[in-house]
């Protein structure tokens, strides 16, 4: 049973946000309006956080692409009263939209604040409905959503591999953000497979995880040289 995880190399990230747009395109994430954006209601399963240190002219900046951490010990799953969010056997923290009652307890208990709520019924201009991905549902108003590691791509990849009578191999299944990253700063794979690239990178000296001290055991690792300053 694989344990899917992601490794993001901050030394390679140029903050271009291709991952952000790829995610929005892949997952039918509605765009906001200026008014909603002012209320910070932009839904962005993947977002790039800028972290700036120092003062003019001695500055350092890092860009932290932040998908769902798919924690092995997910605080959001614990508190869900109806089991709409749960961790499956492959370690994916899933959100079942038809089960969600919209209490937003999970959003509040996520220390990474990366779960999003549908404040309104998502809408697109008629023309833009054409580009919606038919593999991914449109979330209704009032439910919580978040990065799924594009697990619909896993379903398809697995199906393809099986149809071709072979095992799923590394690179068959990658989320949309990983697929597009121009600098190949995002890696994806099975953390339990000791030979996989992600497992090797996650064990490397540059690896760290966000808010590791909380014991959430995130499956998203970051790589950076030097000391990490959150």
């Amino acid at each position: 049973m694989p344990r899917w995880g992601m490794v993001i190399d901050l030394d390679k990230c140029t903050g271009c946000q291709a991952c952000v747009i790829a995610c929005k395109a892949e997952n039918n994430i509605p765009f906001s309006s200026p008014k909603e954006a002012r209320l910070k209601r932009i839904i962005s399963w993947m977002s790039v956080l800028p972290v700036m240190e120092g003062e003019y002219p001695d500055l350092r900046e890092r860009f932290i692409p932040r998908p769902c951490m798919h924690c092995d010990n997910p605080p959001c799953v614990k508190v869900c009263p109806v089991g709409a969010t749960y961790k499956n056997r492959e370690g994916l923290v899933a959100q079942v939209y038809t089960q969600c009652i919209g209490c937003r307890y999970c959003t509040n208990n996520c220390p990474y604040t990366l779960k999003y709520f549908n404040w309104y019924t998502p809408e697109w201009p008629k023309e833009m409905e054409n580009y919606l991905n038919p593999d991914v549902p449109i979330r209704s108003k009032g439910v919580v959503e978040k990065c799924t590691f594009c697990h619909h791509r896993l379903q398809k990849a697995r199906e393809k591999a099986r149809a071709e009578n072979r095992r799923l191999k590394e690179g068959d299944y990658v989320p949309a953000c990983v697929q597009t990253c121009p600098t190949e700063a995002i890696y994806f794979g099975d953390l339990d497979d000791p030979h996989s690239l992600v497992a090797k990178l996650a064990r490397g000296p540059r690896a760290f995880r966000l808010l590791e001290e909380l014991g959430t055991e995130p499956k998203v690792y970051y790589l950076t040289e030097g000391e990490w300053h959150g």
């Binding site: 749960y86 499956n88 056997r89 079942v96 038809t98 593999d135 549902p137 799924t148 379903q155």
Partner: peptide, 8 residues
């Protein structure tokens, strides 16, 4: 029978 096998 995992939920997300069908409920993407």
């Amino acid at each position: 029978n995992d939920c997300i096998a069908c409920h993407i």
